[in-house]
Design a protein around this nucleic acid. Structure first.
Lengths: 137, 137
DNA sequence: ATTAAGATTTATACCATTTACATAATATCG
DNA sequence: CGATATTATGTAAATGGTATAAATCTTAAT
């Protein structure tokens, strides 16, 4: 199988023209599961794609999110992070080392009367200390 | 009972000197359950407290959050919203009218092996359509 | 009351993330 | 190949937030 073949197919299946940059950004999200910021993506891919502009990273991520291939997640409040769409899960942010982990969590159960609400997305964010940082305290 | 008496006591109990502005901002969070942004608080209270500066709103909110009287919540990703601390609950954001509702949700259950993690905070954010907007679609 | 010390508030300037927009480059299709 | 739509780029500007230092208000001791 050719490199980036999966990304190519995925993009096409959503009706997105698979430009090189789009393929690389999607690939980055799929391979590196670090919930990168725009800046991290730009810095990393910019080393190889020398003409890459930050605006393009913004545009591409916006497109991927619109088409359901990626998700924007709000962790710090000042900047967005992105991840490839991979089903429902929560995020754990360590306050000490700032790492962000995917964690499996139970589906959220409403306890109110939720008659009439239409739910499109659910996000769970846990904050605390990861095992490593917790141990060294 | 005097006006703002509760806010006064609450601030003192946390060792915060109850300046007028602090009392008013805490009061605003307690009375108006709209999860306001800094700007909304500034606009509203600034009508009465004419010398109010935005920096003060930032500083005061930061203090209230540090002392556990308020919480900062990330909904839009570009700006923070604030609410008075009132126990665990989730937030529902309507994509149509942008309202934010408090909703009762079940406690989150981890499904991973979470040995060693220290949990300090949990946030649940649901996105979709509120009953009113859902009906008119 | 006066004054000094310290806390609070204000104003200004600054930084970073993100978006808007006009332009240039590239791919696609006849 | 040439025309057209799509994609990528660069500049500049809008926006949220922070840092800093000056001004103001409180508090308490004299």
């Amino acid at each position: 199988m050719k490199k980036f073949d999966a990304e190519l197919k995925t993009l096409k299946s959503k009706g997105i023209r698979p430009s090189y940059i789009r393929v690389r950004i999607l690939n980055y999200l799929l391979e590196e599961r670090i919930h990168p910021t725009v800046d991290e993506i730009y810095e990393k891919l910019g080393k190889e794609i020398l003409t890459l502009s930050k605006t393009t990273v913004y545009n591409t991520l916006k497109l991927l999110v619109e088409k359901g291939l990626a998700k924007a997640i709000n962790i710090e409040g000042n900047e967005l992070r992105y991840e490839a769409e991979r089903g429902f899960h929560g995020h754990f942010k360590c306050q000490e080392c700032d790492s962000i982990y995917d964690i499996a969590v139970s589906e959220i159960a409403f306890m109110d009367d939720v008659e009439g609400y239409l739910i499109n997305d659910e996000q769970v964010l846990i904050t605390g200390l990861c095992p490593q940082c917790n141990k060294s305290k």
